[in-house]
């Protein structure tokens, strides 16, 4: 009999907890709806496509090729990124640059994002600060595998 009372009390306590959540959340949803208390949402949900969570500042997102002040890519085609890449997803082909200070630039620079494991080794290896992973772009879905191979233009733009 004492046991049954404990069980009954535990059941009532449980439903009081869920009921409390219901009423507090409903109250804050209501306050938000009529425009008071914008900062306390009624739910922890992030409504994804309309609302995004801020990424950490060092988050490794899709790659970007940085540019010199004159607009040309910084890359000097040293192949360090392609060498260090554990997924072997970076293809760089070098060509001669007319500028004697630069000597070489990449004629072809492709990253297969379908293979990339986003380890950031290429960014670490680059001596010229030519590649960064700071686009903040995480929605990388594509219709085909070929669409995920980004060429030098797409990488320079940061967004395809």
């Amino acid at each position: 009999m004492k046991n049954a009372a404990i069980i009954l009390w535990a059941l009532i306590k449980g439903s009081l907890i869920t009921a409390r959540h219901f009423f507090t959340n409903l109250w804050f949803h209501f306050l938000r709806l009529i425009g008071i208390k914008k900062y306390r949402p009624g739910a922890v949900t992030i409504q994804y496509p309309e609302q995004t969570k801020p990424l950490p500042s060092r988050y490794r997102a899709a790659h970007r090729l940085t540019k010199r002040p004159d607009g040309k890519p910084r890359c000097v085609a040293c192949l360090l990124c392609a060498t260090v890449c554990p997924s072997e997803c970076i293809i760089v082909e070098a060509t001669e640059d007319p500028d004697p200070e630069v000597q070489k630039h990449a004629s072809r620079f492709e990253i297969d994002l379908a293979r990339c494991c986003f380890c950031g080794f290429c960014v670490e290896a680059c001596p010229e600060d030519a590649i960064r992973m700071d686009t903040g772009r995480i929605d990388l879905a594509a219709r085909s595998r070929a669409d995920l191979v980004w060429d030098i233009d797409q990488l320079s733009r940061g967004r395809s």
Binding site: H21, N25, A43
Partner: peptide, 10 residues
């Protein structure tokens, strides 16, 4: 909706 509000969802 009620289950969502109870569980802090939308």
């Amino acid at each position: 909706k009620q289950s969502a509000v109870m569980q802090d969802r939308i």
